[in-house]
Structures are given as C-alpha cells and as structure tokens.
Amino acid sequence: MRVQILYSFFILMVALAGHFISNAYYLQVLTFIGINTLLALGLNMLMGYAGQISLGHAAFYGIGAYATAILTVHFSWSPWLALPVAIAAAVMVAYIVGVPTLKLSGYYLGMGTLGFGMIINIIFREWSSVTGGASGFVGIPALSLGPVSFSSRQNYLYLVWGCVLLCIVLCRRIIDSRVGRALRAIHDGEKAAAAVGVDTQKLKLQVFVLSAGMSALAGFLYAHLVCFISPETFSFIMSIRMVTMVVIGGMASIWGSLLGASLLTLLPEWLHAFSEFEMVVYGLILMIVMIFLPKGLTRGILDIVERSRRSL
C-alpha cells in the first residue's frame, strides 16, 4: 500500500510540475534532472547495491545517444525502433567489457572502467565519418508518437519522468527480490556471498548490464531532447559527475539517486550568480556535504530529522 501511495505522490508531483510550469527553461531543467536521475539510478544499482565502482559509465550514456543518433539520421530509422537497438548495443558492450573487468576489484575496477570509458570517448571523437567527430552530431530528430509531439517541453518532461518511474519500479522490484538480497550480500562481503552459494560473478555482470541499459536509455532521451550530441558530454568528467550524484544522494537508496541528481543538476544553475567563483563554491559544497553528511543526503537528512525529533 505504502509503495502505491508513494508512486501516486510521485506521479502527482510530475503532473503538477508539467501542468503549472509554463517556462520552458524550468521544464528543461526538470527534464535534465530526470535524465540524470536515470543515470544515477543505474549506477546506484551497481555501486550501492552490488558494491562495484565504475568510473566509465558515461560511455554507456554515450553509446545510447550515439546509437540512436546514427540510426535515426544515417539510416532514417524511427527513434522508437532505434531505442531498443541503442539499449541492446549498450547492454552488449557492457556484457563484453564486464566479463573481464568485473573480475577486478576496488581501485583497479575503477581504473579498468575508466580506461574503457576513455576508449569509447576517443572512438566517438575519432570515428568522425559516422559520429561527426569532435564538432558533434547535428540534426537528430525530435521525438513524436502519432499525434503527440515531444518537441514540446511539457510532453518531454512527462516522457522522461515516465521512464524514471518505470526504472524506479523496476529497481525496487529487483532490490526486494531474491536477487536484491544476493546483491547486498555481495556488497557486504563477496567471498561470504560466494560461500553461501551466490553466483557473484554472474550477478555482478547482470547488474552491470542493467545499469548500462539504463544509462543508454538516458542517452537516448538526451539525444532527442537536445537534438545535438558531442563527445565532451560523455567524457570522463561526466562519469565522475555520475559517481558524485550517487554518493551525494546516498548509496543504496533509490530516492537518494533522485536527490543527488537533482542537487547536481540544480547546483550549477544556482551558481551562475557567482560567475568566476562558481567553481570554488561548487567544490566547497561538494566537500562540505561529504564531510558533514558522509552517508549522502538521504540518510543525512533523515538522521537530522530523527535527532531533532528525539530532542523535542
């Protein structure tokens, strides 16, 4: 029951936002929050629940975006047909890369995924006959479904947040299932998990593939929202930003991903006012949040609330 209330609340919020906000800038920022939430959610499954770090996840985001761009522009496919192919492409790459990479652990896993992310980014840049190279890929069509055009920011907002809701539901079901329990076992101790009969390698790979698929979905949505993509968007910096969203929001927390993505999307928008000081303030905020709320915003806020209630 509780979950249903929560979901209804979520849908209501999105609907209200879409209905009452007419300024396309705010709608666009909200849409970007949605896309970033998808990214954070996918990575959180990997980092928070399976305990595996990835410093190259922007590669899957990019694969999703470039796959749909190439298919819709060079091959004139319908975007809706390109979507499953884009996700499948990311999933396949994740599988191939995941088999050897996920055998690494700790910082070495970070290094392995980082190297992979760099290679993919260089491919985006150098394969210019297909990807448009460093100047970027122009002319990606806007989405439309029958009579509904998603070129309106309102409709796009609903589309993106619809996807977010679907992914949240999916993730929650996985977490509450047998697989989720096995994942948490891996997080707490991989060898112990293996000892009680969890096929750790297979599970890690499955989660890696799942998170790659979600990142690709986000990439698809990004490409058709902005109608332009270039390699910088999917660089190493983006991978780090994704990890930051997960950790700031709170590891192993679905709503934490939402919170982390919101904060990291909104922060640069607020900090415009600081102009030259923007970087300094941004860095300080990251540091301060982590110093005082090392478990992330979700846990941190809950702790503060609980403490204040106890003291009342």
């Binding site: 609340f9 919020m13 705010y26 919170l259 904060l263 909104l266 928008e269 979700t298 806020i301 809950l302």
Partner: peptide, 17 residues
C-alpha cells in the same frame, strides 16, 4: 520519512524559481 524527503526536494526545486 519519504514524505519529508519529498518536501525537501520540492523546496530545492522551488528555490530555483
């Protein structure tokens, strides 16, 4: 708890406006 979280989020977003 979760409702509180949402309130926090709403406030965050409202602040941009």
């Amino acid at each position: 708890k979760i409702r509180l979280l949402f309130t926090a989020l709403t406030l965050l977003i409202a602040a941009t406006f």
